Simulated scan of single mutants.
Amino acid sequence: MAVVGIIMGSDSDLPVMHQCAQVCEDFHLAYDLAIVSAHRTPHRMVTYAETAHQRGLRVIVAGAGGAAHLPGMVAALTPLPVIGVPIASPHLQGVDALYSMVQMPKGIPVATVAIGNATNAGLLAVQILACGDGDLLKRIQTYRQNLTQQVLEKQERLSQQGWRAYLNP
């Protein structure tokens, strides 16, 4: 049964939102992935959001560009935590979507990550779920330790090679 809902306003958001699905797969979390447009399928959005917790979802990641109403509207309709992913659009490069998500009124929070960063949205979903799952908590700690190790290895390589060789392998 899916515990993470990953939704997007359009299939054009999939090149970004697949990052969240990949994180779920990396952490062995079941997810569902759906196109749910706040503007073109509003009744579908309402049904999806209102029944999400009944279907076993525990967190929703919603990606949207432009007016970016999807994360906020879903947050208004569900008791679950919602993480917004602003998607870059050709005209305003995602700043419009970012502002839409971070300017939610008091009482209806949407956790928001950087423009186009569905990887961080997936990791935040993992961290939320890890609050009640000791095994998942250990896996996120291992993930973080691996990030630290990667940086230390890069620093070692930079120290040994110098910046010119590092940039031109």
Rank of each mutant, 00 (worst) to 15 (best):
H28I: 00
L70F: 14
G116N: 07
H18G: 00
A130W: 10
Q19P: 00
L80P: 00
G107L: 12
T78G: 13
A114V: 10
V102E: 05
A111P: 01
V46G: 00
P81E: 09
C24V: 02
T47L: 12
A114I: 04
C20Y: 06
E25V: 05
E25M: 10
P90I: 04
A97W: 05
M45D: 09
P86L: 12
P71Q: 14
Q103C: 06
M73G: 00
D133M: 02
D96C: 04
P105A: 12
V126A: 04
D26C: 06
L129Q: 03
V36W: 08
V102K: 03
C24T: 01
G65C: 08
G63R: 11
T51M: 11
G122L: 03
C131E: 15
S89L: 06
S100D: 07
V74L: 09
P105Q: 12
A118R: 07
M104A: 15
Q22N: 12
L77R: 15
A64H: 11
A97V: 07
A75K: 05
Q127F: 01
Q93T: 07
D32I: 06
R55D: 13
A49W: 10
G116P: 02
G66N: 10
A68E: 02
G122H: 01
H43A: 15
L57H: 14
P71G: 11
A34T: 08
E25C: 02
V36M: 11
G65K: 11
A88E: 14
T119L: 08
R55P: 00
A64T: 08
T112G: 02
A30M: 09
M45Q: 08
P71N: 14
Q127C: 03
A67Q: 13
A88T: 09
S100K: 03
A111T: 14
V23Q: 01
G94M: 07
S100F: 09
G65P: 03
C20T: 15
Q19M: 07
Q127T: 13
Q22Y: 07
R40H: 15
V23K: 01
M101A: 09
N117R: 13
L124Y: 13
A111I: 11
L80R: 05
I35N: 05
V110S: 03
A68W: 04
G66S: 11
L123A: 04
A76V: 08
A125W: 06
H53A: 15
I83Q: 05
L29H: 01
A62V: 08
L124V: 13
I108H: 09
R58C: 04
I128W: 13
P105G: 10
G84K: 03
L98H: 07
L98D: 05
C20R: 01
G134C: 06
A68P: 00
L80F: 13
G65N: 11
I87E: 04
P81C: 10
